[in-house]
Design a protein around this nucleic acid. Sequence first.
DNA 1: TTCATCCTTCGATAGTAATCGAAGTGTGAT
DNA 2: ATCACACTTCGATTACTATCGAAGGATGAA
Lengths: 226, 226
Amino acid sequence: MKEGPDIARVAALLGDPARANMLTALMGGRALTAAELAQEAGVTPQTASSHLAKLEAGQIVVPRKQGRHRYFTLSGPDIVEALEVLMGIANRVGHNRVRTGPKDPELRKARVCYDHLAGDMGVALFDGLIKGKLIENTVNGVVMTDAGVAFADKFGIDLEALRRKRRPLCRECLDWSARQSHLAGSFGAAMLDRFYELGWARRVAESRIVRFERDGERQFRDLVNF
Amino acid sequence: MKEGPDIARVAALLGDPARANMLTALMGGRALTAAELAQEAGVTPQTASSHLAKLEAGQIVVPRKQGRHRYFTLSGPDIVEALEVLMGIANRVGHNRVRTGPKDPELRKARVCYDHLAGDMGVALFDGLIKGKLIENTVNGVVMTDAGVAFADKFGIDLEALRRKRRPLCRECLDWSARQSHLAGSFGAAMLDRFYELGWARRVAESRIVRFERDGERQFRDLVNF
DNA sequence: TTCATCCTTCGATAGTAATCGAAGTGTGAT
DNA sequence: ATCACACTTCGATTACTATCGAAGGATGAA
């Protein structure tokens, strides 16, 4: 009837709760399997498969076969952009899925996002590494500088082992409580692991909260104030 | 379950063809009535009313009552942003409502948009009238200047008759093939009628194409090169 | 080969939402 | 007062789609 791009078709693909959950899970930038996405969306694998088929047909996600797994990624940065804008709108009009409850402050401060640190402290870490010129935020993604490599070694992270994994070393991940980027990727995960090992922080059981020890938080602050 | 804004709810509101049509019509920035939006969407007033109620409840549009009309506008620039991004995606993945077939060039060049001229020549007309200061694009919409009134008279358009109609005299209409505004409103319709009368152009049967005669196009070019 | 795992397809069900005809409400014009 | 118009509400229909159980590949491991 009318000329122009078919907005509705694309928007409808993002307009189902299960699919929206999958897509936001993919915003971290990491490829996820169908099973992981099913869990994220809270649906059975069959249902997830159906949704993923639709998203694939609509070219919102791109599948990559690896062994008996199928890994999905977003088809492009424009999808991320769309999700971001929609989140902004949802936020503005007050369509939120969970109330900002009493124990929320701790979640906002520090929590795990899959396997890396998110929340205010996650953002602080990312910013600190940028300011200290240990990582650089280029158009092609986040990369480590030579100074960063030296730092990782000194901090007790085996970069060579990380590089052997398929997963990208550094990646930025949008933080919805803080609306800024925090550090993801295998290096981001390794940093959080190291915080645990050093006794700076520990996970709170049955929750995504990461609780820093008093001394650990002090050392963390020193770390990010390059 | 998950924290964060409820993307799906917002996206679902944009994910219906009728609603998407209404919203893209509102991208021009001007307030439109429920009836106009119904026509844009190609649905009956009842259906449009239902959609508008949903959009209003979701705070995507804002109503403003004026007499027996209800004017709707987008609730904020973020909505425009979202629509633009979605259009980009739809374009990238090739979800277009009309095929860019062989006879497409003619459609792009000149076609009717309801009752006025759209396409490249429609945009050229609009721009020409603006440049010639016959119309002005103000925040409250497009208005005619004194020079414009004089021109209309000379061109054989009875402005007084047009003014007696309820319909606004001048209006801009977003052109998706050209991504720019063209002239709508009763004056826009009258201009196209006059082109027919003068033998400058004629409609191609069973199509929205407006085909200009060689001489008619030349005179049209003279007209818009104020 | 046999088994386990990951994922998809099929089929049935249930819930939702778009649509429009008919009727109702409110506003402005004659 | 009467009419016309703009819009909404109600009710019924229709169509779609999300969902999951069950079963069927496909891949890798033992």
